[in-house]
């Protein structure tokens, strides 16, 4: 049962392809609490990205449920506390889940500032000037205020990813989902992005991070999930996962990456 601080409850989540011939997710159950920095690790093809992308329904799960803020977003309708049947509007829930992608996915035809104000203005109906002021403050925080008028192609990979993070933050999400945010970066740019994420974690932002950066998982995460073959094989604190691994797959994985 969900605890008081539980934000997302995932139950028996499955994502199959070709009538179950391929099981990208094969029954994942996990509770994500407010303030969690949950790091998901595992070999490639283990389903960790599919798991993350299912959380805001970029992947349509084959079965299982995802309850976010008390609403099962995998269903088409739900009963609100007054017992009224309400249609699930996934767009509303996605506003509260910021997402950062491996390939940044900034909008190339818009300036950095427009990238950041588009959703607050068009989705939340925020005042344009106020949205810009807030965007500039966020850019300032990641050291990119002077690039507000630039187009994405003029930025380095690390700068693009920092913009992508604050673009998601501009919507004031309740949880941030990171899908291998440093995997497409040149090695010297990984640090600047991880620093921003670390800062976010210290502020208490709820985060789910799929990554290959074991140092980050160890240092910043408060929970580490190990996935393989679409299954959640082991869960624990960074100390438990990295120093006292139980599952042979996890031991094998760690011996390869550490």
């Amino acid at each position: 049962m969900a605890t008081r601080d539980s934000l997302i409850q995932v139950t028996d989540l499955k994502k199959h392809y070709n009538r179950g011939a391929i099981k990208a997710l094969d029954g994942v159950t996990v509770d994500i609490n407010r303030g969690d920095v949950m790091v998901v690790i595992g070999p490639s093809g283990s389903g960790k990205s599919t798991f993350l992308r299912s959380l805001n329904l970029l992947e349509d799960p084959t079965s299982g449920s995802i309850v976010f803020d008390g609403v099962d977003i995998t269903k088409r309708k739900y009963k609100d506390p007054q017992g009224k049947v309400v249609k699930v509007n996934i767009d509303e829930h996605r506003q509260k889940m910021g997402m950062v992608f491996q390939h940044f996915n900034l909008f190339p035809h818009m300036t950095i500032l427009d990238n950041m104000t588009l959703a607050p203005v068009k989705v939340k109906g925020a005042d344009k000037a106020a949205a810009e002021e807030k965007a500039l403050a966020l850019l300032d925080r990641v050291g990119l205020k002077d690039r507000a008028a630039a187009y994405p192609i003029q930025l380095s990979g690390g700068q693009k990813q920092r913009v992508a993070i604050v673009r998601a933050l501009a919507m004031e999400p309740e949880v941030m989902l990171f899908d291998e945010p440093t995997s497409a970066l040149d090695p010297e740019m990984v640090g600047e992005v991880l620093d921003v994420m670390k800062g976010l974690a210290q502020e208490g932002m709820t985060m789910v991070v799929v990554t290959h950066e074991m140092g980050f998982a160890r240092e910043v995460g408060n929970r580490v999930l190990f996935m393989a073959d679409g299954l959640l094989l082991e869960e624990g604190s960074p100390k438990e996962i990295f120093e006292m691994p139980q599952h042979p797959r996890l031991k094998d994985f760690l011996s390869k990456v550490l």
């Binding site: 805001n56 970029l58 767009d91 506003q95 910021g98 992608f101 900034l106 190339p108 998601a168 919507m171």
Partner: peptide, 26 residues
């Protein structure tokens, strides 16, 4: 690129807004 739609939708844009502001201009 499909990532453009994913980014737009993950920010909460409806499909019509995604088409209008992100996909059609590009």
């Amino acid at each position: 690129d499909g990532g453009q739609s994913e980014a737009a939708r993950s920010l909460g844009l409806r499909q019509t807004q995604n088409l209008r502001y992100i996909i059609f201009p590009q």
